[in-house]
């Protein structure tokens, strides 16, 4: 590399020795060409490229702004929808709870109703049964009493061998049985 550089430097020195300082001075045709070429580029950048890029950036800004506004509106709408749904859901929930409560109360009432009815009915049945039993016993008792009296008189007639005054004897038996009843009570 050093050799390359020294060769270059030597070459440059040679150039200077031959009076060629022209390398570091602008050449007039190239200067004119440079001025014209740069002028065209400058003019194009100034009059066309910058307005084009500005217009594009404005379009882009507008598009992004519009999209963001749309998104904002959509978001607000979604939020209000969500709020609506939430409200409806809460209402439905409270309604359901009400219905369940009502049903539970109705069921409770029905249950206690049924139980009460059943209790009354069973009580009635018991009472009736007891009454029936008592009547039956009384009836049985009455018929047994008559039977016992007749049997006693028949037995007595067989023993005595003659007809007894049935009426008087019946009264006697009756009295006796009544006495028995009193004693057993």
């Amino acid at each position: 590399m050093l050799y390359a550089l020294s060769t270059v430097l030597l070459a440059a020195e040679e150039a200077e020795e031959t009076g060629n300082i022209g390398l570091v001075l602008p050449e007039s045709y190239e200067l004119v060409a440079g001025i014209i070429a740069f002028g065209i580029v400058f003019f194009f950048v100034w009059k066309w490229a910058f307005p084009a890029i500005d217009k594009m950036l404005e379009d882009r800004q507008r598009a992004i702004k519009g999209q963001m506004e749309d998104a904002e509106a959509a978001k607000a709408e979604a939020q209000s929808l969500l709020d609506d749904y939430r409200k409806q859901l809460a209402e439905a929930k409270s309604q359901a709870a009400g219905i369940i409560n009502e049903a539970r109360e109705a069921a409770e009432a029905m249950k206690s109703d049924i139980v009460a009815k059943a209790q009354t009915e069973s009580a009635q049945i018991g009472t009736k049964a007891r009454a029936d039993a008592a009547t039956e016993r009384d009836r049985a008792l009455a018929s047994a009493r008559v039977e016992v009296a007749n049997l006693s008189i028949d037995l007595a007639e067989r023993v005595v061998g003659e007809n007894l005054d049935r009426a008087a004897q019946l009264g006697l038996v009756e009295r006796y049985l009544a006495d028995l009843e009193r004693m057993s009570d």
Binding site: A37, V41, W48, A49, I53, D59, A63
Partner: peptide, 17 residues
């Protein structure tokens, strides 16, 4: 100069968003 102008022209011509 031509390359610079062509670069700008073809790059910005459509001006797409």
């Amino acid at each position: 100069a031509f390359i610079v102008i062509a670069l700008l022209y073809f790059g910005l011509r459509k001006g797409s968003v």
